[in-house]
Design a protein around this nucleic acid. Structure first.
Length: 629
RNA sequence: GCCGGCUUAGCUCAGUGGUAGAGCAGCUGAUUUGUAAUCAGCAGGUCGUCGGUUCAAGCCCGACAGCCGGCUCCA
């Protein structure tokens, strides 16, 4: 079982294994039991790896028979026998020679010898470094190459269930054979197993795709618009507007200036930036125009562009940086102009593979909370730090507590290939970034060999309440592309120098950020963000005029408010407003009208009592203004 | 892109080869109501698309598209 899951390409060390929790041991043991059951039903099954994972375990198997959920009952029945038999898990240390011999005779990951070799186990064996002990774990007749650890006996597996089947490549490599990955989960007892499935149900209810549809936030019209191209409905549009307002205010105060750039650019733009041809397949195919031949010479494109034979290509932009670089280049720059912070909510298009698309979280059109900060090396640390502080400020507003800054750096083997070949600059900027992170005491992990081609980056990983992990935001250093575009500023010493560039997007993209927020809040947005903030509910038609007055007053203060003037009973109106997750309900009956008051009810919090009208309105305005959580 | 599953009314879903159903939403009317659903009526579908098997297909088979679960990928 030993190959790791693809997120961690390195093998787990024996130390790591010994740190496995009791639950992980139990789940890993359950994977063995499942493998034994599958081997009993289909003796020619070839097993690869079967680790414990976050919510359970899986085992990868190659098998002619396509396992479907219909087979689960039969497999679980065999597992039940194993667990009932309460067999011990016996560890056996063997020599490499013995292990090779057994793998060749098909004995590993099997109930007995076979006339086929245990081919994936042979491959796994080759990954075990010289000098590390090689061990089997044996339960009944089932013997598997495995470093363990396990629970003592099969009977310790209290409650389990197979959950799904998917496919996976052997060792996570696309070039390797595709295996069937059978997922299951296991717990100490039935109560915990049931609690887990309850949690899954809750997660489904919070799913942004479900809430997004229920609340009318967005649609993806695959028939007319296309997969991965969300349409913001008016209510989703309100959230977009609020986020942009927040970003614009924050950036204005932080000394940013706003720009606006087109969605397309000529091929030369991306040749110069270096994005072509390396990222061409992640971009939408170009449009070809047969005009503009005269402009070509200064763009360094060979041949008669703009003609029938060599049309000029235009690409939908997949990133905003090149456009911003051209804005930098549009005027001569002095060191006195720096730092120059260009900000834009820019709409980019990325041709994500069809299987990657996922609700709002992974889309093909994305609005980035983008900015490029051009600065001198002396200004770098302060600018970078200010960006980090902006992140933290945002996270506080949204109550995002669980996050990790992932600091991606280069690796010597990629120098000049995956990364621009400037080892000195790499080291320098990586040191600068690391120092800022250390100085600001930010929780971060360093991941070598994951940097962008133009510099190190920090990705902000967050977890939605339902456990999905996402890169929400990104903060990157670029010391290469400004040079490629020939960007310079005139320094104090009257020489031209290339600026450093910080790419940053603390609010990520509208799509992913709002997708995340929907799950984060379960659709119950704070007042300032709520697509619909207030609804006035007259108890009878006699209060309609009074209600209208309140709604009008709120609307004049830019509060998103409406009224329910249907013939429903007040209970019905409340039910409807609660279902629609409207933040504040102002209920007005005869009593309120007489005393110029309103009865306040807050979504999910119930009746807040009757208060004077002016007080309630002032409080609503104040809560919005301070973006109260 | 790869493997598997799914696709029936705006939404959630029922319908195991014999001429399509429910609840909610919608529309119309009645009801004037005090903190999570007032009543009645109406309307709504060439069952994802195309092809095949069959006397007969929502149901069986095939192709394609989209979605879902993973894998791979993510400037």
């Amino acid at each position: 079982m030993e190959a790791d899951n693809s997120k961690q390409p390195e093998r787990k060390s024996l130390d790591d294994r010994n740190r496995m929790t009791e639950l992980e041991r139990l789940r890993h043991s359950c994977a063995h039991v499942m493998a034994a059951a599958i081997a009993k039903l289909w003796p020619d099954a070839q097993f690869a790896a079967g680790p414990a994972v976050e919510n359970g375990f899986y085992y990868d198997v190659e098998l002619e028979h396509r396992i479907t959920p219909e087979d689960f009952a039969a497999i679980e029945a065999e597992m039940k026998k194993e667990i009932k038999a309460n067999r011990p898990f016996e560890k056996v240390i063997v020599t490499r020679e013995q292990a090779m011999k057994d793998a060749q005779s098909g004995r590993l990951g099997a109930l007995g010898e076979r006339n086929i070799s245990s081919k994936f186990k042979l491959g796994n064996l080759a990954d075990i470094p010289e000098g590390e002990a090689i061990s089997y774990y044996k339960s009944g007749d089932f013997i598997d190459l495995c470093a363990g650890p396990h629970v003592m006996r099969t009977g310790n597996i209290g409650a389990y269930k197979l959950t799904s089947v998917a496919s996976a490549y052997y060792k996570g490599d696309e070039k390797n054979p595709q295996l069937q990955r059978i997922y299951g989960t296991a717990f100490k007892n039935k109560t915990e197993l049931e609690a887990y499935f309850k949690m899954i149900e809750e997660a489904k209810r919070r799913d942004h795709r479900r809430i997004g549809a229920e609340m009318g936030l967005y649609v993806i019209d695959t028939e007319y618009v296309g997969p991965g191209l969300p349409l913001w409905l008016p209510k989703g549009g309100e959230i977009v507007e609020e986020l942009e307002k927040l970003a614009k205010e924050t950036e204005f105060q932080a000394g940013y200036v706003r720009v606006k750039t087109p969605h397309i650019a000529k091929e030369v733009m991306y040749k110069t930036s270096g994005h072509l041809p390396y990222y061409a397949e992640s971009m939408f195919p170009p449009m070809e125009l047969r005009e503009g031949a005269g402009e070509v010479s200064k763009n360094r494109v060979a041949g008669p562009a703009g003609t029938e034979e060599a049309p000029i290509k235009y690409y939908l932009k997949a990133m905003n940086c090149p456009h911003h670089h051209r804005i930098f280049a549009a005027e001569p720059r002095s060191y006195r102009d720096l730092p120059l912070r260009l900000a834009e909510y820019g709409c980019c298009y990325r041709y994500e593979q069809s299987g990657e698309l996922f609700g709002l979280m992974r889309v093909r059109s994305l609005n980035m909370n983008d900015s490029h900060i051009y600065c001198t090396p002396e200004q770098f640390a302060q600018e970078f730090n200010a960006v980090n502080e902006m992140y933290l400020r945002y996270f506080k507003i949204f109550g995002i507590e669980k996050y990790v800054m992932r600091f991606s750096t280069s690796a010597p083997e990629g120098m000049g290939k995956k990364y621009v070949g400037e080892p000195e600059l790499w080291k320098q900027t990586e040191d600068m970034v690391r120092q800022v992170l250390i100085d600001s005491k930010i929780n971060y992990v360093e991941v070598p060999n994951e940097a962008a081609f133009y510099g190190p980056k920090i990705d902000v990983q967050v977890w939605s309440v339902i456990g999905r992990e996402f890169t929400l935001a990104t903060n990157q250093v670029d010391f290469a592309v400004p040079k490629r575009f020939g960007l310079t500023y005139r320094d104090r010493d009257n020489t031209d120098k290339t600026p450093l560039c910080i790419h940053r997007a603390p609010l990520g993209t509208h799509e992913r950020f709002i997708g995340f927020l929907i799950e984060h809040y379960a659709g119950n947005f704070p007042l300032w963000l709520a697509p619909q903030q207030v609804r006035v509910l007259p108890v009878t038609d006699d209060q309609i005029d009074y209600a209208k007055g309140i709604a009008k007053e709120l609307r004049s203060q830019f509060v998103r408010v409406d009224m329910d003037v249907t013939g429903d009973k007040i209970r019905g109106k409340i039910q409807k407003a609660e279902t629609e997750k409207i933040h504040t309900m102002l209920i007005v009956g005869g009593r309120e009208q007489e005393s110029n008051a309103v009865a306040v009810r807050v979504h999910g919090k119930g009746d807040q009592g009757v208060k004077p009208r002016t007080e309630v309105i002032a409080d609503i305005l104040q809560a919005i203004k301070e973006r109260r959580p």
